[in-house]
Design a protein around this nucleic acid. Structure first.
Lengths: 229, 229
DNA sequence: AGATAATTGAACCCGCGGGTTAAAAATGTA
DNA sequence: TACATTTTTAACCCGCGGGTTCAATTATCT
C-alpha cells in the first residue's frame, strides 16, 4: 500500500540493495564458508558498499543467517513445482527421486551452504524456525507416496517415510557435495552426462528395491541397463 | 639405528612433539576448518607451544595438509583390516558395505576433514600423491568382488566398480556428514541404535538390488524386516 | 521552506592471529 | 673443555578485516 507507492517513486531502493547484497553474499559464503568469507569481497561484488552491508544486516553472522534462510526458502520453494498427483506410487517415487537428484544438481550453492552448516553442527539452521513447515511438507510428500503404495499393495508396510527421504537425500546430496574429492580420488567419469545418468538410474533401482513388496517387478520398472528395455 | 639411540636418550623428543601437535591439530581442523581454526587454540591443547608448531610445520596450511595426509593414511589403513577372501561375492559385498558404514561412523573426524576438503574443491587433497595407491586398492577390492560375482553368475555384467564404490560411499558418508542438519530438520530418530541398524539394512538391500542378476534372491539375502527372517 | 527520517560515503579504529626475532637451553661431537 | 647443532622460550610485529564514527545527501512529510 503506502510503502509500495514509496518504493516506486524512490531512486534509492532498499529492497533491491538488500537483494543485491544477499545474492553476492550467497555466492561468497557458499564458496568460502562463514569464517573464510571477507565482507569486503562481498561488497566488491555488489553495487553498494561495505558500509551498507552492516547497515542492513548488522554483522557478518546475521548476514550469513539471512543468506541461509533466503537460499533455503528459494530452493525448497522450487521443490513445490513437482506435481505427483495421480501418479502410480512407484512411478511417483521414481519421479520424486529423479527430480531431487536433478534439483540438487542444479543448486550447488544450496548444497554447499548445507555442507557448511553441517561443519557448524547446524548451529545457525537451528535458529530458523520458519523451516519447520517446509520440512514437514517435504516429509509429507514421501509419506503420501508410502501410504498410497501400501494401499495399492505395492509397497512394504514397514517402511519409514523419514528413512526413505534419507535415502533419496543421501545419493542426491553426496552426488554434488563430494564431487571434488571423489573425482580427485577415483576419476571424473561418474560426473559427465553418461556417468550421471548411470548413477541416477542405479539410485532409482536401489531405492525402489528397498520399498517394493514384490521385487520381481524391479526389472520391469527400472531396468539396470536401459538399452535392453 | 643412530637416530633411534638418540631419541631413547633424549628428553626432548621431536617425533613425539610432532605427533602431539598433529593429534590436536586434527581435532581442531576437523572442528573448525582451515580458516576457522586458530593456531593458538591448537597450541593450547598440546604439551608444547605455538612457536614449535611453526618450527615443525612451517605455516598453517602446511600443518593442515600434514593433518589431512596423516588422517587419511590412518583411516585408509584401518580399512585393510577387512578380509573378504573366500566369501561368496554377494556376502562379501554386504560385508564391505556394512564395514564401510560402521567404519565411517567410527571416524567422524576423517569425514569432517573430507567435507572441508570438498568445500575447498579438494585443492589440498590434490597435492597428496601418496593417496593414489590407497585409492586404487579401495577400488580394487570392489573390482574383485564384481568380477567374482559375475563369474559366479550372481551379478549383472554391466556394473561399474567405481559406481558401486560411489553408492557405498554415498550412504556411509552422508550418514555421518549430514547428521546435524538432517536431524535438525527431520528429527533424531534415524541416529539412535535402532535407526542406524535400519538405515544400514536398507542400504545393503538397495545396493545388492542394483547389482544382483536375479533380484528374487534379495529377500533371502537381506530381508527388509529382519524380525521375519 | 524547514523539520525529520532514511540512506550513503570516507575515513577511521583496534584487536585478533599468523608469523618472526633473538637468544637461551639441551644435546651432540672432538 | 670448547664448539656446533637442534630444540625451546618469551617477547614482539604488523596487516587484515570486522565493525564504527560522523557527517553529508537524499527523500518524505506538513
Amino acid at each position: 500500500m503506502e510503502t509500495r507507492e514509496k518504493s516506486r517513486k524512490w531512486k534509492q531502493n532498499p529492497e533491491a540493495v538488500k537483494a543485491d547484497i544477499l545474492r553476492v553474499a550467497r555466492a561468497e559464503f557458499a564458496r568460502s564458508g562463514l569464517s573464510g568469507t571477507r565482507i569486503e569481497d562481498i561488497a566488491a561484488g555488489t553495487k553498494t558498499s561495505k558500509r551498507m552491508i552492516f547497515y542492513y544486516f548488522q554483522d557478518k553472522q546475521s548476514l550469513y543467517e539471512a543468506v541461509l534462510e533466503d537460499c533455503y526458502a528459494e530452493v525448497r520453494g522450487g521443490e513445490s513445482e513437482l506435481d505427483l498427483e495421480g501418479l502410480r506410487p512407484d512411478v511417483a517415487l521414481r519421479a520424486l527421486l529423479e527430480f531431487t537428484f536433478d534439483h540438487h544438481s542444479r543448486n550447488p550453492e544450496f548444497i554447499r551452504l548445507v555442507m557448511i552448516e553441517n561443519i557448524h553442527e547446524a548451529r545457525h539452521m537451528q535458529k530458523m524456525h520458519a523451516l519447520a513447515a517446509k520440512n514437514e511438507r517435504a516429509i509429507g510428500v514421501v509419506e503420501r507416496i508410502c501410504k498410497a503404495g501400501c494401499e495399492a499393495g505395492l509397497f512394504r508396510e514397514d517402511i519409514s517415510p523419514v528413512a526413505l527421504h534419507w535415502q533419496i537425500s543421501a545419493v542426491s546430496f553426496f552426488n554434488v557435495a563430494n564431487r571434488a574429492t571423489f573425482s580427485t580420488n577415483f576419476g571424473p567419469e561418474l560426473f559427465d552426462e553418461a556417468g550421471q545418468a548411470l548413477l541416477r538410474r542405479t539410485a532409482v533401482r536401489g531405492i525402489l528395491a528397498s520399498v517394493l513388496k514384490d521385487v520381481s517387478q524391479l526389472d520391469a520398472l527400472c531396468p539396470a541397463d536401459p538399452s535392453l528395455a
